[in-house]
Design a protein around this nucleic acid. Structure first.
Lengths: 342, 342
DNA sequence: CTGAAAGCGCTAACAG
DNA sequence: CTGTTAGCGCTTTCAG
């Protein structure tokens, strides 16, 4: 019988056992600290490992243990510096629990996302965290029944899935309240079409703030578009062409805010004086832009860390606790917001 | 004998075989299209698969085949939108060849990078692509001897490893030539300390352009710092305090260029008139900034695609061809560069 | 065209 | 404290 043999076939636990003069079981034991092994045997094994340059094959281990200790995080893209700290938080939490995080990107495409989730189905990973999913409630429920999953940054209505986000509603409320405190009464908002509930929640916060301060809520003051920064430009033009243009604009993202700022500057407005603009997310760009863009920071590191910790808690308790954890935001003051002109 | 049984034990190929009334071998055959199976058997198997919701366990498959068809890409971080198109290119090339790409981030930390490379050692992945590595030549050689690896975006001197980058030297040369064509004669450069050869190569291109146009090369005109955009600000202040300040600045990255632009604006200079600033990379930011930042675009998508294609070529030929492929750059004109004042 | 069976590398139960 | 051995799920040879 001839099997396909890789040229660079690695040394296996068997080779180590032979070299160390012990059984594979003993090697496995020192590898995993799983039972008491005599000092001498331990030493022999460790020497053999070093000599042979042995590194355990996790395919064998994982197959045997029915677990990989790997969690997959599916990102829409790596375009937003925003995700970087979330990932860092995930990695730290994972590392503390003996897990690893691997990433993949879906380009916000349902099919690609499902393809990535194959790793869940084919047992390449133990669990998955979705950062902004394209899947609908039904699909998520199906997944959550069979596997360990979590949503991060973006909730899905009715999905009974572990979810970690910033307090979107509260953050938006605080952002608008801040504009109001700067004397603004005509406050518009740039939001997105589509089903993202973070946008919806931020709209809710915006509306609540207006109500609380007895400012009129005008539907013409909400612009809906895509996430592209060009939409920030379009929105600005739209708002400024209104019979009664706003003096401040709250945007559901920094990218849209940057687009609005860019357009405002090019149309000759002084941002922070003629028009105040506030974003959301606190991506790197908003600190670098001239003028600096006032925004609402998400606790990215904390979000990532919490998502992984909760997910691992679920795994280790063989249970799917599906709470929605909302973490605290923080308003970041920069130059794009200033006192309202009268 | 009692083994640890996972509660949610998945259906296996055995269950499918039983349900379909065939052997596991036959199931495997239809799963892999690996041999002719009668139409009726095929149908029965497919039905059973559907009914049971079967999904093959890749741990078993991979263990058996000694391969995973997964390539790991190790990113320094996901902070740069820059990587997004590279990853897209990688995914497309991988997908076309039956591979998957998984990502991880190293935070430019040697230990984390090595930890990620464990996936290579423990056979969780077939190959790895390093985008900006912390490993030295010796380590890279060692890895390249034992595994399939490639360098992407950042070469390492003396490492005989498959490498794909943009033509850094040529791109920098073109950027500086462009400044010269705008009438600039006093051209400074913001570069980085440390060992990144992309910076080194871009300096070489800068110097070659100066020489070719008989402009004097002045060491005081090169500022070395970290990659943080704050260094762009510091560099600008330094240059402008020189007895003979430059009229144009070429930066090895858009982030540094943005820092310089920000500082210039805040010091009252008109960017594109009083001072021209050119970046490198064409990250999203440079198009959004006001003024738009002139830069050198890397063919990111192509770089990622090429890296994966070449790597898979190596794998499938069981050989480590270690050429360095340099792909074409493109100068992107925006407002941050204008005619030199006299 | 199909089934039996070996074995990928590893862990863990069991017996000693 | 240690060795033997079954078996995780899968692919593939070999024989029919």
């Amino acid at each position: 019988m001839l099997f396909h043999i890789k040229i660079d076939m690695n040394v296996t636990i068997k080779d180590v056992a032979k070299a160390a003069g012990v059984s594979v079981a003993t090697v496995s034991r020192v590898l995993n600290n799983s039972a008491t092994v005599s000092a001498s045997a331990t030493e022999q094994v460790n020497n053999a490992i070093k000599e042979l340059g042995y590194s355990p094959n996790f395919l064998g281990r994982n197959l045997r243990k029915c677990e990989t200790n790997v969690i997959l995080a599916v990102l829409p893209s790596t375009e937003h510096s925003f995700y970087n700290d979330i990932i860092r938080g995930m990695q730290v939490a994972a590392s503390e629990n003996g897990y690893d995080i691997i990433l993949s990107t879906s380009n916000s495409n349902y099919n690609i996302e499902m393809r990535m989730l194959n790793m869940l189905f084919n047992r390449t990973v133990d669990a998955a965290i979705l950062l902004g999913t394209q899947l609908d409630v039904a699909k998520l429920k199906e997944l959550n029944d069979k596997y360990y999953i979590a949503l991060c940054c973006e909730r899905v209505e009715g999905a009974n899935v572990l979810t970690i986000t910033v307090d979107d509603e509260g953050g938006a409320h605080a952002a608008v309240e801040n504009l109001i405190n700067y004397g603004h009464k005509k406050i518009a908002m740039i939001s997105t079409t589509g089903s993202a509930l973070s946008s919806f929640d931020r709209e809710s916060g915006y509306i609540r703030a207006l109500r609380e301060y007895d400012l009129k809520y005008d539907e013409n003051y909400i612009y809906h578009g895509t996430y592209d920064y060009e939409n920030g430009e379009k929105a600005l033009d739209y708002f400024m062409s209104l019979p009664e243009p706003p003096t401040a604009i709250f945007c559901i993202s920094d990218l849209l805010a940057a687009g609005a700022v860019k357009a405002a500057i090019s149309r000759g407005y002084k941002v922070g004086e003629d028009i105040s603009i506030c974003g959301f997310d606190n991506i790197q760009l908003s600190g670098i832009y001239t003028p600096g863009i006032t925004t609402v920071a998400q606790p990215c590191y904390e979000i990532g860390k919490t998502a992984v910790n909760e997910l691992i808690y679920n795994i280790s308790h063989s249970h799917k606790y599906s709470k929605h954890i909302k973490l605290a935001y923080k308003v970041i003051h920069r130059e794009s917001v200033g006192k309202a002109k009268n």
